[in-house]
Design a protein around this nucleic acid. Structure first.
Lengths: 149, 149
DNA sequence: TTACTTTAGTTGTATATACAAGTATTTAGT
DNA sequence: ACTAAATACTTGTATATACAACTAAAGTAA
């Protein structure tokens, strides 16, 4: 269904239409992601932070590194990490080289919950590109990059 | 900058990469929108609802209609509309044909604040497509549609 | 008419997030 | 070495949002 029909609004500037289409589609995706994560009691951003930590392959990450890589930058990463800490999915320690920093590591429990979630999430992610050719996907990702610049 | 470099993660499945790229870019856009709206004391969704109401061209909209057309569906449209009501940007009355429904209309004040905001928002929206050809934009919007299906 | 279901919206409460101010550590300048 | 500025994070507080329970009106059917 075309975005114009969904939001019932014909004849808008092309930039506005494109922006609304992008945000609308992204929100659908995020809602679906949240639904998949719900049984695991994780929010999309908590999940995202766990994946960032897993990507560190054993090296700790500090809060500002996490924040830089987050999909949705938020004003309070401390408390988001607190939630993961309370669930035993991450560990936190003071960085000895620079005592202002904290070092955050994913725990075994964190890794194992991620391993469980990867399947349904990647299945959904494959699903969103199932109607697209490889060229189309490539072009789409490039267009997103140009939009960000 | 490529999404892989932003989130520092090489070699992920194409679907995951595309999903992350889409959500990351959308969030940037929404943050920028929020920034533009800040001086007007409106959140992106409050602004969105005002535009939906303007699109009604004098006809009232009820809450479920608004919810259907919102970019970001939320669990509590009542209270979002309450905020707009408190600011005098919308009016609310009980629908006489079906007294379960409420009819919401945008006020003159609502229309005039929208008129002010349209400029900076559309300028930003034009900006995001400035590096794209017309064909590229068309293809992009079509791909978003396919992703939603 | 009465009872059951559905629809439309509201409200209570717990949690999340934003924003600003605060603390501790490090860096830089004199 | 002393002070000022910057960095990294934390905390208080106000506001926003999610979720579930609730109310009220309308439709349906025996």
């Amino acid at each position: 269904m075309k975005i114009e029909d969904i939001i019932q609004s014909k004849a808008m500037p092309l930039g506005r239409k494109t922006a609304l289409n992008l945000m609308y589609t992204s929100n659908l995706l995020q809602d679906k992601t949240a639904e998949i994560l719900k049984p695991f009691d994780l929010s999309p951003e908590q999940f995202n932070v766990l994946r960032i930590l897993r990507g560190q392959k054993g090296n700790p990450a500090n809060l500002c590194t996490i924040q830089e890589r987050m999909i949705c930058k938020m004003s309070n990463t401390t408390r988001l990490v607190d939630k993961l800490l309370a669930k035993g999915l991450v560990e936190r320690s003071v960085c000895q080289e620079n005592r202002r920093k904290v070092e955050i590591n994913i725990t075994e429990k964190g890794l194992s919950i991620l391993a469980e979630i990867d399947e349904p999430i990647d299945e959904h992610n494959s699903n969103i590109i199932k109607n697209l050719t490889k060229e189309e996907i490539e072009a789409f990702n490039e267009t997103l990059e140009k939009i960000r610049d």
